[in-house]
Simulated assay, not measured.
Amino acid sequence: MNLKKLSSTFLLTMMLIFTVSNLAHASLLQPNVYVNNQKMDIYAHVSVVGVTYVPFRPIFSKLNMTVNWDNAKKSVTATDGTTTIVLTNNSYTAYVNGKAVQLINPPVYNPDDKLFYVNLRFVAESTGAVVNWSKTDTDANIYITNPNLK
């Protein structure tokens, strides 16, 4: 009888550890995104090389940029009147105000969810924002601060 209780307790403990571990891991791989301390309704995705990706439309919109999507080229152009950013699917070259900028990893179009994912740090810093990470053992948040935003 004691062996049965011990086995059940061990099994339950292992299940709880595994569940909490998976939740923490998922949270670190999909951090929350805040722009000027307002939480966005998106999660970032961190690639294996550490590049943080987000869907382009919500982040550009939050940064007060007008967005144009070219479905044929799988490229996005975003502008706020002073800064224009052009990103193309799988291209290691982005354009900021017409100047070519080399990227660590290219933006990616995902045909499954039909979303175009862009490098969050590149986009934020190209618009004059500052990006900071806040990590614990179980959670991660990204804070983008742009004093030009209202």
Rank of each mutant, 00 (worst) to 15 (best):
D113M: 06
D113C: 05
D113N: 15
D113R: 05
D113G: 09
K114F: 09
K114S: 14
K114D: 12
K114T: 15
K114W: 05
K114Y: 12
L115H: 03
L115M: 13
L115C: 09
L115K: 14
L115P: 00
L115E: 04
F116E: 07
F116T: 04
F116N: 04
F116I: 12
Y117W: 12
Y117H: 08
Y117K: 01
Y117E: 03
V118W: 08
V118C: 03
V118P: 01
V118N: 03
V118M: 07
N119M: 06
N119D: 15
N119I: 03
N119C: 06
N119L: 05
N119T: 11
L120V: 10
L120T: 10
R121W: 06
R121V: 14
R121Y: 03
R121E: 07
R121K: 15
R121C: 09
R121S: 11
F122H: 08
V123N: 06
V123K: 05
V123H: 10
V123E: 12
A124Q: 07
A124H: 07
A124Y: 10
A124F: 11
A124I: 08
A124T: 04
A124E: 02
E125P: 03
E125L: 06
E125W: 02
E125F: 04
S126T: 04
S126A: 15
T127F: 13
T127H: 05
T127W: 02
T127R: 12
G128F: 11
G128D: 03
G128A: 06
G128Y: 07
A129I: 05
A129P: 05
A129C: 07
A129V: 09
V130L: 08
V131E: 07
V131R: 07
N132E: 14
N132C: 00
N132G: 06
N132H: 15
N132K: 15
N132R: 14
N132V: 12
W133A: 01
W133N: 00
W133I: 00
W133P: 00
W133H: 11
W133G: 00
W133F: 13
W133Q: 01
S134E: 14
S134F: 08
S134A: 14
K135T: 12
K135A: 11
K135M: 03
T136H: 01
T136S: 13
T136N: 03
T136F: 04
T136A: 03
T136I: 06
D137E: 14
D137Y: 14
D137A: 15
T138M: 07
T138I: 13
T138H: 10
T138W: 11
D139S: 13
D139L: 12
A140T: 06
A140I: 05
N141S: 15
N141V: 00
N141E: 13
I142F: 01
I142H: 08
I142V: 15
I142S: 02
Y143H: 13
Y143A: 03
Y143S: 09
Y143D: 02
Y143K: 00
Y143P: 01
